[in-house]
Design a binder for these strands. Structure first.
Lengths: 209, 209
DNA sequence: AAAAATTAATTAAACGTTTGTTTAATTTCA
DNA sequence: TGAAATTAAACAAACGTTTAATTAATTTTT
């Protein structure tokens, strides 16, 4: 195996679980089964390694919504697709999202903070455009678009952040982890889509009960 | 000033900003303008100090919803009050909420993790009861109560966590911090109340546009 | 194709700081 | 005077990083 990739994925896992300051380069070297000095040799420093991890992983989460925005399907279906995309993304790699949001809540490493902000902000701007188009065309109510986005992302994020809380909440069965289950993904998708229909659509006939 | 309280509030501020591992006891001693050894003298250890901080501050955020649950007003108005309560709470002391949620996303200090989970879980159970009552009485649609709660808390939490993102998003004006502004609080309150009405109420006439 | 030379990868050990904590001496105040 | 509060100094351990030596791989030369 390529030691570079081994270090990167191990570092990603440990940074995600224990935070940047909570993870020592010795922890990483041990878990990746490489010599301590290899980390400096390949990445220069712990902080540079961290930047490489963020760079390395954000390419995989960078979904392009620009194309979706241009397509001619109803805006509410675009919202559906965005929800599906975010749910899959965040549940596929929860550790990395913990890492990103933890970094956003810290006042350390300002340049990393800005870099992450820019990554997340690009998609937010596109989504805001889609919501605004829906409002302008009369398909959506004149909702607060910024806060509507906060609701979409915040709902998923909240489930990720409070993973263990959620486990106790959703399933008394202790051996079962809802975060590896497809059921929860679908449940979140379904919930958010219904929620957004109720919130956005003017003539909402979505109550199927 | 009482050095104990000075240390507690300083530690709370620094832990909130830089995380537990990112804050040294020397940082705290310097910022609190007390001698380094005073922290061990008063609190025993850094970890004990952290527990004192969480204990000390969680008493102030521990709002009792049990009484609200028992009162005889419509369930939707109870939801309104819960939203107001959470918005005020989380915007009043955002650093402490950063601290709590960061701790929940980490796999360090399991006992602290459990303690925080229990604090947050108590309110969640009560809120879930209120939603379920609304469903049972026919006032609310048969929504997914767990995820509805995740939406309420997640929306507020998302605005806190991505504070700087939000600042760029909501106001291009860089000198203005939306998190000290009453306007954002009211905006979030308003948004969530409308959202929950659309989501929960069966005959929703809340569209005032 | 074999040998020599050169570069790259890997290692154990050590470097100087910073960490949390403790000690022992001193000051403060009742 | 005596207990509590406060201090500067020192402690060992852990930290990120570097060094210098060794092995492995690659390239060059014969």
């Amino acid at each position: 195996m390529d030691p570079r990739e081994t270090i990167l994925s191990t570092a990603m896992k440990l940074f995600g679980e224990k935070g940047f300051e909570g993870t020592s380069v010795r922890d990483i070297a041990k878990a990746a089964d490489v010599n301590l000095a290899m980390i400096s040799y390949y990445f220069g420093s712990k902080e540079k390694l961290f930047e490489h991890v963020v760079d390395y992983k954000s390419s995989s989460i960078r979904v392009v919504f620009e194309e979706l925005a241009k397509s001619s399907i109803p805006q509410i279906e675009k919202v559906d697709k965005i929800i599906d995309s975010y749910v899959v993304r965040m549940f596929t790699n929860p550790q990395f999202h913990h890492l990103l949001h933890r970094e956003l809540s810290l006042h350390q490493r300002p340049q990393m903070h800005d870099a992450i902000t820019e990554i997340l902000l690009r998609n937010v701007v596109t989504i805001k455009g889609i919501l605004q188009s829906g409002i302008d065309s009369g398909e959506f109510k004149a909702v607060d678009t910024d806060l509507t986005i906060a609701t979409m992302l915040g709902t998923i994020n909240h489930l990720l952040i409070s993973e263990s809380m959620c486990r106790k909440l959703l399933h008394k069965n202790k051996g079962f982890n809802p975060f590896t289950s497809k059921k929860l993904k679908e449940r979140v998708s379904e919930h958010l889509k219904q929620l957004m229909r109720s919130h956005l659509l003017i003539n909402n006939k979505s109550d199927k009960r």
